[in-house]
Amino acid sequence: MNHPIVRYILLFSLLLPAHLPLRAQVINWGNLQDGQRHWINAHTGAQYGMVFGLGYAYQLADSEFPVIANAAYSFPSGNNLLDDFKAKLGTQVRLLQMNDFHFAVKAHGIFRGYENELVRLLNWGMDLSGTIGYYRPSWFVAGEAGFDKAISTRFKHTDTYKKQYPDVKDGWYAPATGGNFNYGLQGGVSFGRHDITLSGGGLLQEDFKKKPLLPFYLLLGYNYRW
């Protein structure tokens, strides 16, 4: 926790009052209603594994540039549901509106964990992304693209790994240990206080050559607004 990058991330996280999952909490910018400031979200699908997640969002400003702050937690399925997780904190803002066309950007700090019989990883990261699309009050479709950077990672190896390699160095590793681009589409329908959303697309590692083991994402989400 003494790593300078970690301190920067902590500072950044404090500056952002809440956060949004990269694609999970999809917003219908065409259906922002007066008096509705809260969203809760549930989502499931494929995103670096078969994942489940919950989120909360709060609209900070009703201005020409609405700002929505979010917090979310997700985890992959498996025998142990507590060993791997991803928590995100951030905001998204709609920067441009021309009739029913909207352009929005998001920035999120990420804290995630991974554990198997060989190592325990904790990672501070960040994702930046944008969406541009056609939004109507009852439906929308948009393109999205973003970049998720694993900025600094703490490695704590188990005795099993240390038996294999006793000189392994535990601790925080920087600079960045990884990064992936995402690109795809999102869409959904809105009715009453509800949104049902679907987002999907491809993933590409930062070298633009290799792909993750699951080279795509496909997430189904549900929002309740009030």
């Binding site: 670096y48 594994g49 399925s77 498996g78 025998n79 791997d84």
Partner: peptide, 21 residues
Amino acid sequence: KLWGELLNDAAFLDQFITGKE
């Protein structure tokens, strides 16, 4: 297996570590 530990451990790791060729 789609919901299994093996697939999800392997896939989830891709967020933490990516290596260039």
